[in-house]
Amino acid sequence: MSEPLLNLTPAGLYCSRGDFHIDPWKPVPRAFITHAHADHARWGMGSYTCAEEGAGLLRRRVGEAANIATVRSGDALRVGDVTVSFHPAGHVLGSSQVRVSDGREVWVCTGDYKRGDDPTCAPFEVVPCDVLITEATFALPIYSWAPGEVTAREILAWWDEGVRRGHACVLFCYALGKAQRILGELARLVDRPVYVHGALEPLVEAYRAAGVALLPTLKVTNAEKGRRFAGELVLAPPGAYGSTWLRRFGDYETAFASGWMRVRGNRRRQGFDRGFSLSDHADWNGLLTTIAECGAQRVLATHGYKDVLARACREAGLSADVLSTEFSENDDEGEAT
């Protein structure tokens, strides 16, 4: 066979036999989108195709006028000479892996994914394949996540301390995915309202509209003037850190929920009072397990520590390379707020 099923072109990952791109970063006629984060879903495509659960979020990202088709998870689409299907990736609501097959060979592009439990989205599904294009955001063995519930209990303990001491607890987190996951994890433990920054509210609503159970939320901007936030949990996007927006909380502590918080230097340097190591990306074991379980003989790594992952795969006897994509190297920090 001469040409690979998927190729890297200046616009992104391209399948010539189906004439479509996956998560392209330049305008193309037909785009298959793994999920609605900014580095994967961009403006200006002729048409978009995504998993049903992700359509609401995708529309918010690419605009009301965009031409969006949806497909049920697992359903096969015939596209040119190949079949394409979407399978849950467990990253955020509606996030999917894209499987492409020409009947002889199967390629899977994971998009972003994680293996841990998350009450706000369908769990990752292992899709057997020959070639796996996997993310590598946290591909170092120092990254190992505790179950989300364990971290949620730590967040709750911090919140309870805020209640006891009478200060606000301002928790910074990515606006799409992380914030809702925290609200979903906490909903399993308590039933109290949480204040949210205006930028998070529509995304929280989009999750609710999709039937995801979250703690009730109140908008910070709707709180009456002079309101004290003692003992309240407030979720805010990272961009609000260090801004005057924080002044209204008077006495408060700050925290950041991100996989990067696992390293002490990151916690200290960024100046947050607390760091909760909570990530929507696969940790080291999650990456290796996935590669082993899907049975791929060839691995292509994107995002983050791709060289490390590719080398580890080669040392394990697989064929592996890095793919230089334009996805964020840095988790979803580029995420618009």
């Binding site: 063995p141 120092i142 190992s144 996540w145 505790a146 179950p147 696992r262 390293v263 002490r264 230097g265 940790d283 074991n285």
Partner: peptide, 10 residues
């Protein structure tokens, strides 16, 4: 710290 994180495989 690196050593500790490597050992602290969840």
């Amino acid at each position: 710290e690196t050593v500790s994180l490597l050992l602290d495989d969840q």
